[in-house]
Amino acid sequence: MHAVADSIELSFPSSRRNPPGDVAMWVFILAELTVFGLLFMIYGVARMKHVALFNAMQLTLDRSAGAVNTVLLVTASWCVARAVASIREEASVASARWLAAGILAGLGFLAVKVGEYAAKFDAGINLDTNLFYMFYLSLTFFHFMHVILGLVILAYVWRKTRRGGYTAADHHGMETGASYWHMVDLVWIVLFPLVYVMR
């Protein structure tokens, strides 16, 4: 196990002490996480005060759609991580393909979410329906907007990768974009169990 860990360590720059990508992006990521964290904690307190309502309303959510979306986002994150690993090997064609796969998985997430929203709106559900749905719609839509921004960033990185804009020696921009995308994935990894499953 130590041998495996040591060999994996070799694939990362051993002298790197700062996170991959631009430090300014990491400050932005920490700010974003702070906002989402506050919202999640407020959600938890609101749930504590209205347990029966939250438990009843949660049963009206499509948990399978939430799980499919989790699979799509973690898969997108994996593709982006593989894209970064590929560019470190100077394999820009493979890197662009991994990025394209990640973007497709992200678009799949948006499609499933739009389907969920459509079903809720058709059922007459909106922000005023009750406290649970106010949180559900606000939290998931706020995250939805972040997925869109993440996809715009990935699309830019993909285009630049296809044009040979990144190399094994210089792929700082790709790492910056990848870090933002992983943040979007991380937030959903918390949101899914809190809103869709925990009861």
């Binding site: 700062n18 996480l33 904690m41 749930r47």
Partner: peptide, 29 residues
């Protein structure tokens, strides 16, 4: 995926700490 393994503990701690606080508050609630 975020590749924070191996970077300064402050960075890792900030993000993992965020995760632990959010989950702990929800578990306590």
């Amino acid at each position: 995926f975020m590749a924070l393994r191996g970077v300064r503990l402050l960075w890792q701690g900030a993000v993992i700490g965020w995760l632990m606080v959010v989950l702990a508050v929800n578990l306590a609630a």
